[in-house]
Amino acid sequence: MDNQDHFKFSNGVIIYPMLFVLLLWAIFWFEIRFGFDFTNFGVYPQRFSGLRGIIFSPFIHSGIEHLYHNSIPLFVLSAALFYFYKSIAWRVLVFGILLSGLLTWIIGRPAYHIGASGLIYVLVSFLFFKGIIAKHYRLIALSLLVVFLYGSMVWYVMPIKEGMSWEGHFSGMIVGIVFALYFRKNLPQPKKYYWEQEDYKEEEDEFLKHFDENGNFIENTTLDEESEEPVTKINYIFKKNTD
Protein backbone atom coordinates (compact mmCIF):
# COMPACT_ATOMS: atom_id res chain seq x y z
CA MET A 1 0.00 0.00 0.00
CA ASP A 2 1.31 3.41 -0.90
CA ASN A 3 2.35 5.80 1.83
CA GLN A 4 0.08 8.77 2.41
CA ASP A 5 1.31 12.05 3.82
CA HIS A 6 -0.04 13.71 6.93
CA PHE A 7 -1.25 16.76 5.01
CA LYS A 8 -4.79 17.21 6.22
CA PHE A 9 -7.21 20.04 5.62
CA SER A 10 -8.93 21.47 8.69
CA ASN A 11 -11.13 24.47 9.36
CA GLY A 12 -8.19 26.28 10.94
CA VAL A 13 -6.42 26.40 7.58
CA ILE A 14 -8.96 28.98 6.43
CA ILE A 15 -10.39 30.36 9.67
CA TYR A 16 -7.17 31.45 11.39
CA PRO A 17 -5.73 33.35 8.40
CA MET A 18 -9.14 34.90 7.71
CA LEU A 19 -9.53 36.09 11.31
CA PHE A 20 -6.03 37.54 11.26
CA VAL A 21 -6.70 39.51 8.09
CA LEU A 22 -10.10 40.65 9.35
CA LEU A 23 -8.44 41.89 12.53
CA LEU A 24 -6.09 44.05 10.46
CA TRP A 25 -9.03 45.55 8.59
CA ALA A 26 -10.98 46.08 11.82
CA ILE A 27 -8.07 48.02 13.35
CA PHE A 28 -7.72 50.13 10.21
CA TRP A 29 -11.49 50.81 10.19
CA PHE A 30 -11.29 51.83 13.86
CA GLU A 31 -8.53 54.33 13.06
CA ILE A 32 -10.52 55.88 10.21
CA ARG A 33 -13.87 55.81 11.97
CA PHE A 34 -12.72 57.43 15.21
CA GLY A 35 -9.86 59.53 13.91
CA PHE A 36 -6.97 57.68 15.53
CA ASP A 37 -3.47 57.24 14.19
CA PHE A 38 -1.60 54.27 15.59
CA THR A 39 1.60 54.92 13.68
CA ASN A 40 3.49 55.81 16.85
CA PHE A 41 2.84 52.24 18.03
CA GLY A 42 5.14 50.96 15.29
CA VAL A 43 8.73 49.87 15.69
CA TYR A 44 11.05 52.82 16.26
CA PRO A 45 14.63 51.48 16.16
CA GLN A 46 17.04 52.09 19.02
CA ARG A 47 14.39 53.83 21.07
CA PHE A 48 13.11 52.11 24.20
CA SER A 49 9.50 53.16 23.57
CA GLY A 50 9.82 51.78 20.06
CA LEU A 51 10.04 48.24 21.45
CA ARG A 52 6.27 48.11 21.78
CA GLY A 53 6.13 48.14 18.00
CA ILE A 54 7.56 44.61 18.00
CA ILE A 55 4.10 43.45 19.04
CA PHE A 56 1.85 46.12 17.55
CA SER A 57 3.47 47.08 14.24
CA PRO A 58 2.11 44.13 12.15
CA PHE A 59 -1.43 45.30 12.91
CA ILE A 60 -0.90 48.92 11.81
CA HIS A 61 -0.95 50.18 8.21
CA SER A 62 -0.42 53.56 6.65
CA GLY A 63 -3.37 53.42 4.28
CA ILE A 64 -5.87 51.20 2.53
CA GLU A 65 -3.47 50.43 -0.34
CA HIS A 66 -0.79 49.35 2.10
CA LEU A 67 -3.28 47.12 3.92
CA TYR A 68 -4.72 45.67 0.72
CA HIS A 69 -1.32 44.71 -0.66
CA ASN A 70 -0.49 42.92 2.59
CA SER A 71 -3.83 41.19 3.09
CA ILE A 72 -3.82 38.78 0.14
CA PRO A 73 -0.29 37.38 0.56
CA LEU A 74 -0.77 37.19 4.32
CA PHE A 75 -3.92 35.10 3.90
CA VAL A 76 -2.46 32.82 1.20
CA LEU A 77 0.86 32.22 2.94
CA SER A 78 -0.56 31.70 6.42
CA ALA A 79 -3.15 29.27 5.01
CA ALA A 80 -0.30 27.31 3.39
CA LEU A 81 1.55 27.38 6.70
CA PHE A 82 -1.41 25.91 8.61
CA TYR A 83 -2.02 23.28 5.96
CA PHE A 84 1.52 22.00 5.45
CA TYR A 85 3.05 22.76 8.86
CA LYS A 86 0.14 22.66 11.29
CA SER A 87 2.21 21.45 14.26
CA ILE A 88 4.55 24.46 14.18
CA ALA A 89 2.33 27.08 12.52
CA TRP A 90 1.60 29.11 15.65
CA ARG A 91 5.24 29.13 16.70
CA VAL A 92 6.30 30.37 13.29
CA LEU A 93 3.67 33.13 13.37
CA VAL A 94 4.19 34.33 16.95
CA PHE A 95 7.97 34.12 17.05
CA GLY A 96 8.13 35.36 13.48
CA ILE A 97 6.40 38.58 14.55
CA LEU A 98 8.57 38.98 17.64
CA LEU A 99 11.96 38.17 16.15
CA SER A 100 11.50 40.05 12.88
CA GLY A 101 10.29 43.06 14.87
CA LEU A 102 13.24 42.85 17.24
CA LEU A 103 15.73 42.62 14.39
CA THR A 104 14.05 45.59 12.71
CA TRP A 105 14.40 47.53 15.98
CA ILE A 106 18.12 46.74 15.99
CA ILE A 107 19.03 47.51 12.37
CA GLY A 108 16.30 49.93 11.27
CA ARG A 109 16.50 53.60 10.43
CA PRO A 110 15.15 56.12 12.97
CA ALA A 111 11.54 56.12 11.76
CA TYR A 112 8.32 54.26 12.51
CA HIS A 113 8.20 50.87 10.84
CA ILE A 114 4.65 49.53 10.49
CA GLY A 115 2.75 46.87 8.56
CA ALA A 116 2.50 43.09 8.28
CA SER A 117 5.06 42.89 5.49
CA GLY A 118 7.79 41.77 7.90
CA LEU A 119 5.67 38.73 8.81
CA ILE A 120 4.92 38.12 5.14
CA TYR A 121 8.63 37.94 4.42
CA VAL A 122 9.01 35.49 7.31
CA LEU A 123 6.39 33.25 5.70
CA VAL A 124 7.76 33.56 2.15
CA SER A 125 11.28 32.79 3.30
CA PHE A 126 10.25 29.97 5.63
CA LEU A 127 7.96 28.21 3.14
CA PHE A 128 10.51 28.43 0.35
CA PHE A 129 13.59 27.23 2.23
CA LYS A 130 11.70 24.67 4.31
CA GLY A 131 10.39 23.01 1.18
CA ILE A 132 13.87 22.86 -0.34
CA ILE A 133 15.39 21.45 2.85
CA ALA A 134 12.60 18.89 3.25
CA LYS A 135 13.17 17.39 -0.22
CA HIS A 136 9.52 16.36 -0.23
CA TYR A 137 7.83 16.65 -3.60
CA ARG A 138 4.75 18.46 -2.29
CA LEU A 139 6.78 20.89 -0.22
CA ILE A 140 9.15 21.56 -3.11
CA ALA A 141 6.09 22.26 -5.26
CA LEU A 142 4.94 24.70 -2.59
CA SER A 143 8.35 26.38 -2.67
CA LEU A 144 8.14 26.80 -6.43
CA LEU A 145 4.64 28.20 -6.13
CA VAL A 146 5.83 30.71 -3.54
CA VAL A 147 8.63 31.80 -5.87
CA PHE A 148 6.19 32.12 -8.76
CA LEU A 149 3.74 34.24 -6.76
CA TYR A 150 6.07 36.28 -4.56
CA GLY A 151 9.57 35.86 -5.95
CA SER A 152 9.74 39.52 -6.98
CA MET A 153 9.48 40.50 -3.33
CA VAL A 154 13.15 39.67 -2.89
CA TRP A 155 14.07 43.02 -4.42
CA TYR A 156 12.40 44.85 -1.56
CA VAL A 157 14.86 43.56 1.04
CA MET A 158 17.11 46.28 -0.34
CA PRO A 159 16.64 50.07 -0.06
CA ILE A 160 15.26 50.59 -3.57
CA LYS A 161 12.00 52.38 -2.72
CA GLU A 162 11.63 55.52 -0.66
CA GLY A 163 9.36 55.24 2.36
CA MET A 164 9.40 51.43 2.43
CA SER A 165 10.82 49.54 5.40
CA TRP A 166 13.35 47.36 3.64
CA GLU A 167 14.81 46.65 7.10
CA GLY A 168 11.53 44.98 8.11
CA HIS A 169 11.56 42.93 4.91
CA PHE A 170 15.18 41.94 5.37
CA SER A 171 14.56 41.01 9.01
CA GLY A 172 11.59 38.85 8.03
CA MET A 173 13.59 37.05 5.37
CA ILE A 174 16.43 36.27 7.78
CA VAL A 175 14.05 35.03 10.47
CA GLY A 176 12.29 32.79 7.92
CA ILE A 177 15.58 31.20 6.89
CA VAL A 178 16.53 30.62 10.53
CA PHE A 179 13.14 28.99 11.18
CA ALA A 180 13.52 26.74 8.13
CA LEU A 181 16.83 25.50 9.52
CA TYR A 182 15.66 25.28 13.12
CA PHE A 183 12.50 23.35 12.26
CA ARG A 184 14.16 21.21 9.60
CA LYS A 185 13.26 18.02 11.49
CA ASN A 186 9.60 18.98 11.78
CA LEU A 187 8.41 17.37 8.56
CA PRO A 188 5.03 15.85 7.76
CA GLN A 189 5.60 12.16 8.30
CA PRO A 190 4.12 9.58 5.97
CA LYS A 191 1.70 7.07 7.39
CA LYS A 192 3.49 3.78 7.89
CA TYR A 193 1.87 0.42 7.50
CA TYR A 194 3.69 -2.52 9.01
CA TRP A 195 2.69 -5.78 7.45
CA GLU A 196 4.73 -7.90 9.82
CA GLN A 197 4.25 -11.59 10.52
CA GLU A 198 3.08 -10.88 14.09
CA ASP A 199 0.12 -8.93 12.68
CA TYR A 200 -1.18 -12.27 11.49
CA LYS A 201 -0.11 -14.29 14.52
CA GLU A 202 -3.52 -15.66 15.38
CA GLU A 203 -4.24 -16.52 11.75
CA GLU A 204 -0.77 -18.03 11.34
CA ASP A 205 -1.08 -20.19 14.45
CA GLU A 206 -4.42 -21.47 13.19
CA PHE A 207 -2.98 -22.07 9.73
CA LEU A 208 0.09 -23.94 10.97
CA LYS A 209 -2.11 -26.44 12.80
CA HIS A 210 -2.84 -27.94 9.39
CA PHE A 211 0.82 -28.89 8.84
CA ASP A 212 3.22 -31.21 10.59
CA GLU A 213 6.73 -30.24 11.64
CA ASN A 214 8.09 -31.12 8.18
CA GLY A 215 5.68 -28.79 6.41
CA ASN A 216 3.40 -31.53 5.10
CA PHE A 217 -0.33 -30.90 4.97
CA ILE A 218 -2.38 -32.95 7.42
CA GLU A 219 -5.16 -34.44 5.31
CA ASN A 220 -7.79 -34.78 8.03
CA THR A 221 -7.89 -31.03 8.62
CA THR A 222 -9.71 -28.32 6.71
CA LEU A 223 -8.76 -24.72 6.06
CA ASP A 224 -10.99 -21.87 7.15
CA GLU A 225 -12.47 -20.36 3.99
CA GLU A 226 -13.31 -17.12 5.80
CA SER A 227 -9.62 -16.40 6.32
CA GLU A 228 -8.71 -16.76 2.67
CA GLU A 229 -6.71 -13.52 2.41
CA PRO A 230 -4.68 -13.93 5.64
CA VAL A 231 -4.05 -17.63 4.82
CA THR A 232 -2.70 -16.65 1.44
CA LYS A 233 -0.32 -14.22 3.09
CA ILE A 234 0.75 -16.67 5.78
CA ASN A 235 1.13 -19.45 3.26
CA TYR A 236 3.61 -17.26 1.41
CA ILE A 237 5.56 -16.61 4.60
CA PHE A 238 5.46 -20.25 5.61
CA LYS A 239 6.68 -21.53 2.27
CA LYS A 240 9.35 -18.89 2.14
CA ASN A 241 10.67 -20.00 5.53
CA THR A 242 10.67 -23.69 4.65
CA ASP A 243 12.19 -23.59 1.17
Score class of each variant (00 low, 15 high):
His69Val: 12
Asn70Phe: 01
Ser71Asp: 01
Ser71His: 03
Leu74Asn: 05
Leu74Gly: 09
Val76Trp: 03
Leu77Ser: 00
Ser78Thr: 15
Ser78Lys: 03
Ser78Ile: 06
Ser78Pro: 13
Ser78Arg: 04
Ser78Asp: 01
Ala79Gly: 14
Ala79Asp: 13
Leu81Thr: 02
Phe82Trp: 02
Tyr83His: 12
Tyr83Ala: 14
Phe84Lys: 13
Tyr85Cys: 10
Tyr85Thr: 10
Lys86Asn: 14
Lys86Phe: 15
Ser87Ile: 12
Ser87Lys: 15
Ile88Glu: 06
Ile88Lys: 07
Ala89Cys: 09
Ala89Leu: 05
Ala89Gly: 11
Trp90Cys: 09
Val92Gly: 06
Val92Arg: 03
Val92Leu: 11
Val92Lys: 03
Val92Gln: 00
Val92His: 07
Leu93Gln: 11
Leu93Val: 13
Leu93Tyr: 08
Val94Cys: 13
Phe95Thr: 02
Phe95Val: 07
Phe95Leu: 10
Leu98Asn: 08
Leu99Asp: 00
Leu99Gln: 00
Ser100Val: 10
Gly101Val: 01
Gly101Cys: 07
Gly101Met: 08
Leu102Val: 03
Leu102Pro: 05
Leu103Tyr: 03
Leu103Arg: 01
Leu103Cys: 02
Thr104Met: 05
Trp105His: 03
Trp105Phe: 11
Ile106Arg: 06
Ile107Met: 09
Gly108Lys: 00
Pro110Arg: 13
His113Glu: 07
Ile114Glu: 00
Ile114Val: 08
Ser117Cys: 12
Gly118Ala: 06
Ile120Cys: 08
Tyr121Ser: 05
Val122Thr: 11
Val122Ile: 06
Leu123Asp: 04
Leu123Arg: 04
Phe126Glu: 14
Phe126Asn: 13
Leu127Gln: 11
Leu127Asp: 10
Leu127Gly: 13
Leu127Glu: 08
Phe128Ala: 05
Phe128Gln: 02
Phe128Ser: 01
Phe129Lys: 01
Lys130Gln: 15
Gly131Ile: 09
Gly131Cys: 09
Gly131Val: 02
Gly131Glu: 02
Gly131Tyr: 00
Ile132Tyr: 05
Ile132Met: 09
Ile133Leu: 05
Ala134His: 08
Ala134Arg: 01
Lys135Phe: 07
His136Cys: 09
His136Phe: 00
His136Arg: 12
Tyr137Val: 14
Tyr137Gly: 12
Arg138Phe: 14
Arg138Ala: 15
Ile140Gln: 12
Ala141Ser: 15
Ala141Lys: 11
Ala141Val: 04
Leu142His: 08
Ser143His: 04
Ser143Leu: 00
Ser143Gln: 05
Leu144Val: 14
Leu145Trp: 09
Phe148Glu: 12
Leu149Pro: 08
Tyr150Cys: 00
Gly151Val: 07
Gly151Cys: 02
Ser152Arg: 14
Val154Asn: 01
Trp155Asp: 13
Trp155His: 11
Tyr156Cys: 07
Val157Pro: 07
Ile160Trp: 04
Lys161Pro: 02
Gly163Val: 10
Gly163Cys: 07
Met164Tyr: 14
Met164Phe: 14
Met164Gln: 13
Trp166His: 03
Trp166Lys: 08
